[in-house]
């Protein structure tokens, strides 16, 4: 499937799509998007790359085993939950750091965002594991 047009388009597109996926992930708390959608977008980007350049090239570009991504994602989500336990709150309680209260609050980072990053990594890792394995098996 590695036609020249597809290859050229892919090189252009993949970077853009990946940037968009990260954008979706981080704006998810305020606007449509989030970890699930972001990961699916990124997965599509890598799938496109794998189809045009081959699974081996995709693995090289990825640098790490996608299964590690899955594990890292689950651990990140778990860590976000355990942070609350360390702070003597129930598991997975959202903690935020910033200033102000209520509607005026200016938060910089919170454990729900980290949790969403975990979701992103898990879903992306799973999709990549499957797509690459299926592609190599073909």
């Amino acid at each position: 499937m590695g036609t020249l047009i597809l290859k050229a388009a892919t090189r252009l597109l993949v970077g853009l799509i990946l940037v968009f996926s990260v954008y979706l992930l981080f704006r998810g708390h305020q606007s449509p998007g989030g970890g699930f959608a972001g990961a699916l977008v990124a997965g599509t980007a890598f799938a496109l790359f794998a189809i045009s350049e081959g699974a081996a090239a995709c693995r090289r570009a990825l640098r790490i085993d996608p299964r590690l991504l899955t594990a890292a994602g689950l651990l990140t989500a778990l860590a976000a939950g355990i942070t609350a336990v360390v702070a003597n709150k129930p598991f997975l309680t959202g903690l935020w750091w910033g200033w102000g209260h209520g509607a005026e609050a200016h938060v910089i980072i919170g454990t729900p965002v980290i949790f969403d990053i975990g979701v992103y990594l898990t879903v992306l890792g799973t999709i990549l594991t499957l797509v690459l394995a299926l592609e190599e098996e073909a």
Partner: peptide, 13 residues
């Protein structure tokens, strides 16, 4: 929960 997207807040918080 400091989120304006209620669906996402339900999911992650």
């Amino acid at each position: 929960a400091h989120g304006r997207n209620i669906v996402n807040v339900i999911l992650v918080d």
